[in-house]
Design a protein around this nucleic acid. Structure first.
Lengths: 337, 337
DNA sequence: CACGACTCGGAAAAGCTTTTCCGAGCCTGT
DNA sequence: ACAGGCTCGGAAAAGCTTTTCCGAGTCGTG
């Protein structure tokens, strides 16, 4: 028994009564369907306006069997990478009149299951999984039926799942070729833990761009500035030190640049440095500012929105696609712009 | 005409039919209401389990006039500060069975209005505004009736709006008193733009902790490392230079620390430095690591969740409350722990 | 003038759950 | 053995919108 209906929430029945027409007529007037005299239509529209009427999406959804709602399940607690994706996704979906449920699963399968269950209860029209994990994720334990599911910046076990990812390998090629174009010949790669697929892909792109690979120039470690500093120190101790470094992300790049600065090694003249992620608070605060590869995560989110809408319409099929990265040159690889 | 109902979505009617009971009986069995023989109840529960039945929240919400849904409207595009708030908020609300709609208004009133309108259509039970802005925000142009509205890390024009904020002033006192406790006497304050209320509050806390204030030691500028570096240079040029610096955020603090490091000034021995925000990627990557003030944004989000739930229950009233900050000492103010 | 056709608005069902009210059947006590 | 009371399950309405179908009224034309 809904006791206290919000004072300013009117129902279609109220509109109809005020306009002096029947329920169905009012509906048709507002939806421009059916055949009505324009006079009647205007009467209804006026009444609706006066009352500030807003149709109840719940009833609408119940009736049409479509909720105009999708769920987003993040596994990195709304971390740095999820944000721009969410932003792009939300923009596109909002334009299509679709609202976004936010859930944070934090890589906890139990929590994820509860979230999915809740979303299914809300009859979402689609589901998006996001959040970089070390590696591919197992399929969620729940039967999702034919609900559209999209993995963004994240992957699934299922072979034909719909995935949307940045082209890490291409980005790495972009970076390496940029360094090659500067005439560098000994290019090191200081990057993150090997159990990230992105790390393996970037490394592959790096290796593919080189005519020959020197394994001593490839260093794996944690994603931190401290590791960048340590790795730089190690590289400088080599008998034949590199003339360029491609870092696996901007934090590592910054650690490298700082160490080179400490040792009065000129960047980019002696050693050029390029990062990955284009995280501006890192890349632009460094001295010199760090060139980087932008994964265009906001575009990735927007593309995810478009693709999900197509899937909801039943138009599109699964499959993995990768969106190109972009080179953002800054002072760490370019001599006086 | 809902044509293709999802294959694995069964309705209560299906459960009832399978259990050989009527609709109402099935409902009562699942909700543990009414008076049923336990045998009948079990029969229904079994059928529901076999079918994987999940009640349709849409219908439920429609019936009870409560959607178990709240909207979150962010004005900083899901920025760095919104994330932990969202995380805390989502955790608490999820435990209460409430789902969270995410909207990004980006300080665009038109966009915000459309979002609110959409949320009202979805009959959300409450609304949360978040996202640091330069200053207080005008009340949204829509009549919200008696819908619970909570401003988190954000403020409203309305005098008795419900606001939840970090205690910037107290945090600044914490920082300043920490420096005083180290025996420092000339404490500078390098901070952000004056049109941020947080900047004014932090400055007030700083001034309140000092026996006398030297205006030449207070510098306003942008929120960046570059500004921290510039301000540090200026402070070092003073005839009577400070022996401690309280920075308005961690980026500024890091800029300061780097400049001091460049000039071989010992931190903290010659000049102690403390930041604000406790942004770990900044504070912990710096050399030395930077002491900071933590606003406990995740707790703020959690508290927001609890408070919103009380408001939805009709228990709580408006008013602004501020949650305490915490001192996180690191190497930039403590000599070898 | 009358009939047919067309225009417009209303009634009703569907979509799914919850809850109240009521009826039927069974048991017990006299 | 019968009446009353209690236990259990079913029927129905409410919550709000959309859509189909149908009836009534009107206009035009023969």
């Amino acid at each position: 028994m809904p006791e206290a209906k919000s004072p300013n929430r009117y129902t279609l029945r109220d509109v109809a009564r005020r306009a002096g027409v029947s329920l169905g007529t009012a509906s048709k007037a507002l939806n421009k369907s059916g055949t009505l005299r324009s006079e009647t239509r205007d009467k209804v529209l006026l009444a609706a306006n006066e009352l500030g009427f807003r149709p109840n999406d719940l009833a609408q959804a119940l009736h049409r069997g479509q909720s105009f709602t999708v769920g987003l399940i993040s596994n990195d607690s709304f971390g740095r990478f999820t944000m721009p994706i969410m932003e792009g996704l939300e923009t596109v979906l909002h334009e299509a009149g679709i609202a976004l449920f936010m859930c944070n699963a934090t890589d906890d399968p139990e929590r994820e299951k509860r979230h999915i269950d809740q979303l299914l209860g809300k009859r979402v029209d689609g589901l998006v999984f996001t959040g970089r994990r070390a590696d591919r994720r197992p399929a969620p334990g729940l039967a999702l039926g034919n609900l559209p599911v999209l993995y963004v910046f994240s992957q699934s076990d299922e072979p034909d799942a719909a995935c949307l990812l940045p082209d890490d390998e291409g980005g790495a090629r972009l970076a390496t070729e940029h360094l090659l174009a500067l005439g560098r010949t000994r290019i090191a790669h200081v990057t993150g833990p090997e159990d990230f697929e992105a790390v393996r892909l970037r490394r592959r792109g790096y290796e593919a761009s080189l005519s020959q690979v020197d394994p001593t120039l490839i260093l794996h470690g944690p994603w931190s500035e401290a590791w960048g500093r340590e790795a730089a120190t190690r590289l400088l101790a080599l008998p034949n030190r590199p003339d360029a470094i491609f870092a696996g992300n901007d934090q590592i790049a910054r650690g490298i640049v700082e160490t080179l600065r400490d040792k009065a090694i000129a960047v980019p003249d002696d050693i050029a440095v390029i990062g990955f992620d284009n995280w501006s608070v890192m890349a632009e605060a460094s001295r010199p500012q760090i060139s980087s590869i932008d994964m265009n995560l906001k575009s990735l989110g927007e593309e995810a929105g478009h693709r999900l809408i197509r899937m909801i319409r039943g138009e599109s099929q699964g499959g993995t696609s990768r969106l190109p990265c972009t080179l953002v040159p800054r002072a760490s690889t370019t001599t006086t712009p």
